[in-house]
Amino acid sequence: PDLGLTQLFADPNLIENLKKNPKTSEMMKDPQLVAKLIGYKQNPQAIGQDLFTDPRLMTIMATLMGVDL
């Protein structure tokens, strides 16, 4: 199971919303991170391994779920 990750990354406004959010806007200036996020739309399971190697993803996930870290 993808634990709902498919829906989190399926939002067509995902990148724009993250660019507008004060907690994630600075991160979204990294083209490699943006490319990763776009890739998760097609393969949400890929985030599982990346969560352990890129701490920014935890902040992004929390933001998408509405959790304040």
Rank of each mutant, 00 (worst) to 15 (best):
E26V: 07
S25W: 05
L14H: 02
L14C: 06
Q42K: 13
I38R: 08
A62E: 14
V67F: 13
V34P: 01
L69S: 15
D50E: 11
L57V: 15
Q42T: 15
T6Q: 13
D11W: 02
N13Y: 13
I60Q: 00
Y40Q: 01
L3N: 13
A10V: 07
G48W: 15
L51G: 06
K23A: 12
M65R: 12
L3W: 09
L8F: 12
Q32Y: 12
T59C: 06
M65V: 07
M27F: 15
Q7N: 12
D2E: 15
K29P: 00
S25A: 14
V67M: 15
L33N: 02
Q42N: 15
A35N: 08
N43V: 03
P22W: 04
L5D: 06
Q42R: 13
L3V: 12
T53K: 11
Q42P: 03
K36S: 07
M28T: 02
T53V: 10
F9P: 01
L18W: 02
L14A: 06
G66I: 07
P22T: 04
P31H: 08
K20A: 14
T24S: 03
L57D: 00
T6L: 14
Q42D: 14
K29I: 03
N43L: 03
K23T: 08
M27I: 12
K23C: 05
L37H: 00
F9N: 02
L18Q: 00
A35D: 13
G66E: 12
V67D: 15
D30F: 01
T53Y: 06
P1K: 03
P44D: 04
N13Q: 14
N43M: 04
L51S: 13
D54W: 02
L57R: 00
K19A: 09
E16N: 13
M58K: 11
I38G: 06
D2Q: 15
A62D: 04
E26T: 07
T53D: 14
P1I: 10
L33F: 11
V67W: 15
D50I: 04
L51Y: 10
L51P: 05
L5W: 14
P31R: 07
K20W: 07
A46Y: 11
L64V: 09
P22L: 06
A10I: 06
A62M: 09
D2V: 15
P12L: 05
I60M: 03
N21C: 04
P22Y: 05
P31Y: 05
P55E: 11
L8K: 05
